[in-house]
Computed example of a mutant assay.
Amino acid sequence: MPKFTDYEKEQIRQDLLVKGRKIFIKYGLVKTSIDEIIHECGIAKGTFYKFFSSKEELYFEILINEVEVRESVLNELFRENLSSKELLNSFFHFSFDSVEKNPFLQRSFQNDEHERLIRKLPTQMSEFNQKNAVRGIHAVNALMNQGTLPKDDPRIIVGIMQAVMTLCLHKKEIGDDIFPIVKDKIIEFVIEGLLKEKN
């Protein structure tokens, strides 16, 4: 097996992340094979295994990168000088848009992809989910301290936000034509409920 310089290793890793993402978007996690990934990257199977022990590990790293990009944009949003209603509205709409306009995140929100990751990478997924929950609680605590959200158990508010986000999974059942209206109405009702509780 050839030895790679640090620069070559970084190039191969980035290639796997970028091309792997495209293939996962096209075929999904289950239907993508390592052979397809290595063919697209022009590397040997042994080289793939120097970087990732499975296609699930590669998928998981791409998912982490996508979530980190989304989080950095959300952090900027929280720094803007917005009213409570504007901030919550922007948060929910940005969260929806970041999934709806990102085909990789769309796929990762599908139950079969998520369930497969939990089965194949239970420790990593458990840590990932816990880390997301802690991030959510910190963000909600900050919003409560600045008076944007009512004082409540932050886990409950995080749970409400997560419940709203699961709407993405039911777009087909709701109907593509009315989904945007339903989504906007639910966001409006949740925000009104949260702010009413605050007042």
Rank of each mutant, 00 (worst) to 15 (best):
G159H: 08
I186A: 11
N111P: 13
K151W: 01
H138G: 03
R119Y: 09
N132H: 03
K120M: 08
I186W: 03
M144L: 05
Q110S: 14
T166G: 12
D153K: 06
A133G: 01
H114D: 15
H138I: 03
E173N: 14
D153L: 11
R119L: 09
E113V: 10
V134H: 10
V164I: 12
R119D: 06
Q146K: 13
I174H: 04
M125N: 00
L149S: 00
L121C: 09
A163K: 09
H138S: 13
I157H: 04
Q106V: 07
K185I: 08
K185C: 10
I181S: 12
I187V: 06
K120D: 04
T123V: 01
N132M: 03
E113C: 14
K183N: 05
N141M: 03
L117D: 07
T148L: 03
K171W: 10
K172N: 00
E188K: 14
F179M: 07
N111V: 13
P154T: 05
N141F: 00
V182R: 13
K101C: 02
I118T: 08
Q124Y: 02
A133N: 02
I191W: 04
A139E: 02
I137E: 09
E188R: 14
F104M: 05
Q130H: 09
E100V: 00
K131A: 02
P122T: 04
G159L: 12
F128P: 00
P122Q: 07
Q110A: 14
G136I: 02
N129C: 03
D152Q: 13
M165P: 04
F179H: 13
K171F: 07
L167I: 00
I191V: 06
K183A: 09
I157C: 10
A139P: 07
K183L: 05
I187D: 03
D184R: 11
G175D: 10
I160L: 12
F109S: 09
H170W: 07
P180G: 14
P150C: 04
L167H: 02
I174T: 04
E188N: 13
I156F: 14
E127Y: 03
I186R: 10
Q110E: 15
L121A: 01
Q110M: 15
D184E: 10
E188Q: 15
A139I: 01
R107V: 02
K172L: 10
I181K: 15
H138C: 11
